[in-house]
Nucleic acid binder design. Sequence first.
DNA 1: ACTACTTTCTTGGTCCCACAAATAGATCGT
DNA 2: ACGATCTATTTGTGGGACCAAGAAAGTAGT
Lengths: 234, 234
Amino acid sequence: MDSSAGTGAGSAVDQVVTGIRSYISEQGLSVGDRLPTERELCERYSAGRNTVREAMRILKAYGMVEVRPKVGATISDNRMARAFELFAFNTMEVSRKTFSDVQAFRDLLEVGSAEILLERICDDDIAEMRMINAELATVQDLHDASEIDFRFHVRLISILDNAAMLDVYTVMKPVILRIMEKGKTRRTFRTDTLAEHEGVVDALEARDRLAFQYKLRSHLNFGFRHFREEMEVA
Amino acid sequence: MDSSAGTGAGSAVDQVVTGIRSYISEQGLSVGDRLPTERELCERYSAGRNTVREAMRILKAYGMVEVRPKVGATISDNRMARAFELFAFNTMEVSRKTFSDVQAFRDLLEVGSAEILLERICDDDIAEMRMINAELATVQDLHDASEIDFRFHVRLISILDNAAMLDVYTVMKPVILRIMEKGKTRRTFRTDTLAEHEGVVDALEARDRLAFQYKLRSHLNFGFRHFREEMEVA
DNA sequence: ACTACTTTCTTGGTCCCACAAATAGATCGT
DNA sequence: ACGATCTATTTGTGGGACCAAGAAAGTAGT
């Protein structure tokens, strides 16, 4: 794997990497299982500890193992998150198409998952969302407001307990933040955005699916109208 | 973002990683430019060479730098390729949680976008999907079948003309392929998968939203049952 | 002056050792 | 039997050393 391609699979580090990988599959280990200690791996592959550590760094970077200091390494499966991280969502210019694409995407995710959301939501979720939303009233800065806005929606998504969805949101964060900033003005975010979020949480608390979907959708579309006007002027 | 995951941003290695990254952007370096030597980086960040080397391993794993032994490190940008390679080599199985998360995600995207789909779909789309699906009858290999299966679903998504959604699917391709392979056996993909796809296209052609959603959802869930049983045995 | 060879320096790859810090397990005391 | 303490283990980090291969500089030959 290695990368490199330069040194090829002959590199000692790469050998340890493939060694550990085959060890995992040979032993039939899966997520959560513990890996041997570094020193054990040194002996097993006749390598120095630095070599083993560099190999572990690669595995960690690939999201295949997780290392807790002073405890040991366990197998994990965060490869999706890593892949998304690497995937450069070009955030530079937010064109109108990017805007509508991303918003449609969010609509699909957030509005579309209403049923599962209502199944899983608990009081803590609601309380936390209210807390996050309350911060909106305290901030002055447009960027900070968008940051809180984003956290609110991430908190909503997190109820689903779906790593793939959370990963996608994390990656798209820069784009979403830009979109949020575009949709806000200094006059409105402390009133409109806050009120809209509040309405969404109220609907969730009342377990009113239709109201939730309606309010969330119009919240998402609010910025869109603003953006559209601005663009059409330009 | 560092990957972090484990030790947090406070780790010396992570500090060097972020240090090098900011060094690159500060100096305005781009692909092909050379990085300082390891020993220089040691001084610059007051770290041991082991620490710097582990940091470089991370950067290499991320496809951000390329290291030629005895020569030095240069900046590269293989992040996209890296994202795909991440899964390609993998001997590891997709974990059950990853599986269910991804399938739930796909359900949300594909089943959830039924309305927009029916708005936009045209005869060409249907014809192409039928063509792709017809290839399923001709392939022998399990992997090839999954490849076609994937293309079918990508073609479905592409009707939406949403770049964000297509990008997400592209990144998730390796994972989805694995999931597809898991859900197939040599006996069924030429009959069941093909028939299920056919049913989906028929529903689309008839502009029958409910039938489309029902058939697509059960198609997505089919492999899930298979996977679940297999996992519970283990 | 130009080429070809040789030498020296540089640089990444690997290994070993030592210490710090924090955790987990064992030991001890009550 | 339970809790506090102590020890051993384990990762994180720094430092030093050597090797091999490439690059650069110097040298000799034409």
